[in-house]
Design a protein around this nucleic acid. Structure first.
Lengths: 206, 206
DNA sequence: GTCTATAGAAAGATAGAC
DNA sequence: GTCTATCTTTCTATAGAC
């Protein structure tokens, strides 16, 4: 029995355990609604240790969630099939188990005045630029931001709000529509010659 | 001086004032991060009155935010110009003043375990069905949910995260792209004959 | 109709013993 | 390296005086 599962008196291991449990709690309840006491209890350690190792609740959140936020796994595929690939992945059956999902933690905590600014900064400084660099072209940052807003908005309604239409609805239709949207953002502007609007009248409405 | 601005000893007026201030606070800080004391102070009344009139913080939120959530103003236009109309409106210069915005309060509070379920229910029972009825056609609920996820995701990044690319970026490009997305959801499925993917190989990736 | 006063719980953080 | 004990603040909610 030499598994290092919980070797009493090992700072590194304890730190990792706290971090892992914190990620889970932040993902489920968001920043404001989860307490250090609950995290400590789940991690099997004392509350005091959290502040000892991380300084404060905000700094714990920084290490557990903010630093973990990245878009690299979205950018590993083919640009021509990005829409299809990501749309399919978005609609996968929930793997709501233990595996950490920083994106969901992001959505659940963005509203908090305490850590919202941290998440915004991460978005501005890393996520958007990284995706913009990958897609390239004109208005790359705007298009990158639209892609992220699509993913986050979808997750917000599907997994946070547990909206049935998106969770158990017509998956094929959802994937087709979302894929078109995402691919449209990657490919760029509709220019003018798009067949989208057949030059309808469009009288000066309001 | 007979303005009913703050007629001491008027329950109805006081109730309205509390409600209005609460809407503002919920919109700015979200449910979890704002206290009844702050709301009472801003409203110029005593904390006890809030519970007296509304019963509890959750019930206050119900009246102030949940009941105010609706999509009627989105459905008053022409279906053929829905994309353009809404995309333009989404990107308006911020009117962050006092006027209440239930959609923003929604996004800021959805993560809260205390009121998240209330917001989900409102979405499922009213917002999605109302929009689905309006757009009609196949997979209407799924398309309605996608429209709402687009609006909420955009607001989340633009107004909550204050993402610069969406707030001060190339507005023309954003409107064009978002309009195409939204109109696509209203019009429905791409069917198969869309020119989107030129029958690329797409080898069984991963 | 509105207030004071307070109960009662829970939060984050810290000092210091073991 | 980890824990006990405690400080301080803040929260929602309620009972009851004015």
């Amino acid at each position: 029995m030499t598994q290092p599962s919980k070797p009493t008196r090992n700072a590194a291991s304890t730190r990792e355990r706290i971090l892992s449990v914190a990620q889970h709690h932040f993902k489920v309840n968001g920043y404001d609604a989860c307490g250090l006491r609950d995290i400590a209890a789940d991690a099997g350690v004392n509350v005091a240790l959290i502040n000892r190792y991380f300084g404060s609740k905000v700094e714990l959140f920084q290490k557990a969630v903010v630093d973990a936020l990245q878009v690299d796994d979205l950018l590993s595929g083919n640009k021509d099939t990005f829409g299809q690939d990501i749309a399919s992945r978005m609609t996968w059956n929930d793997f709501d188990d233990d595996d950490f999902d920083p994106l969901l933690a992001f959505v659940k905590s963005l509203g908090s005045p305490a850590v919202g600014p941290l998440l915004s900064a991460r978005l501005t400084d890393h996520l958007v630029p990284a995706m913009a660099r990958w897609i390239g072209g004109k208005a790359a940052k705007e298009r990158a931001a639209l892609i992220l807003s699509t993913l986050l908005g979808f997750d917000m309604l599907r997994r946070m709000a547990k909206l049935d239409s998106l969770q158990n609805g017509n998956r094929k239709a959802i994937v087709a529509l979302a894929a078109r949207t995402l691919q449209g953002y990657v490919d760029g502007m509709p220019e003018q010659g798009d067949r989208s609007r057949p030059a309808k009248s469009r009288p000066a409405k309001r």
